[in-house]
Design a binder for these strands. Structure first.
Ligand SMILES: [Zn+2]
Ligand SMILES: [Zn+2]
Ligand SMILES: [Zn+2]
Ligand SMILES: [Zn+2]
Lengths: 133, 133
DNA sequence: GGTGTAATGTTATATGGTTACATGCGGCGT
DNA sequence: ACGCCGCATGTAACCATATAACATTACACC
């Protein structure tokens, strides 16, 4: 995974994601990098696609949003995510058992490209806040 | 899970989903039920939300689309999906191990509402078609 | 310099989802 | 019956997400 081929757009987008403590939508990102010359959605999506290919960024399907990968090994891991539907915060996790489950479910005739595992719910922080209303 | 409270809109939408061999987007559904009186997206989304609450319909996050649940027990099951990114066909599956994985990943402080597991890739049928080009 | 090819930029458009408000319709107290 | 409330449904307008189509630039190769 050559991470050295990032251009300045990619770097800026990666920076915006790294600076945020929660996922950003493509349009959130676009806003943050407008000053850096990017001005159209498609540019952001192109960079995001590249960053995802390199394992530096993950897409959270349930949020239509993106996070910077927080694992040391960006290449080839199969992460899952715990997503709070109140505050949007995401925790990346890894579980070897998922691959086996996916393979047995898909069958030998199916070529697995990606496994999306998202645990949706409410984090402790938000549950506390709700209780104290 | 009282499934008897479906109104005619709900029935129509459920019918459209049941008749299709692959997921339908909300707008696909809308097109199919226009003759039945529905004419705005929000009506479709309202019905879909209700049908999802009752477990009759599942949302496929990676496709922004919906399928009719094919399991006998519509209530309270935690399905996963195998999704072909070429033809869009989906196979619903169930695996008890997923709940355990989700719980251990989320931790005791997190209130799990839903688990989304989607295995994305290419089905045998589509791989065959691609090979014969 | 001319030519082909890939990356990037620009504009416009397609697709997916929600907000805000109007209207209808059944309870329920009077 | 009447007026009022609360909730389901209808309608229009709008916002958010993603891609298509085409123009331009950058650079390798000859
Ligand atoms: Zn990661
Ligand atoms: Zn939270
Ligand atoms: Zn199901
Ligand atoms: Zn297929």
């Amino acid at each position: 995974m050559a991470t050295g081929m990032l251009n300045s757009n990619d770097e800026r987008i990666l920076g915006a994601l790294a600076a945020s403590d929660r996922p950003l939508s493509a349009y959130d990102i676009l806003e943050q990098v407008r000053s850096g010359g990017l001005k159209a959605p498609v540019q952001v999506y192109r960079s995001l696609a590249k960053l995802q290919r390199q394992g530096l960024v993950h897409r959270i399907e349930a949020l239509n949003a993106f996070i910077r990968c927080c694992q040391a090994d960006h290449g080839g891991h199969r992460p899952g995510f715990v997503v709070c539907r109140d505050c949007g915060r995401v925790r990346e996790f890894e579980d070897q058992r998922m691959a086996a489950i996916a393979e047995s479910a898909a069958g030998s005739d199916f070529d697995i490209e990606r496994i999306s595992v998202e645990v949706l719910g409410h984090c402790g922080r938000c549950r506390g806040a709700a209780a104290s209303l």
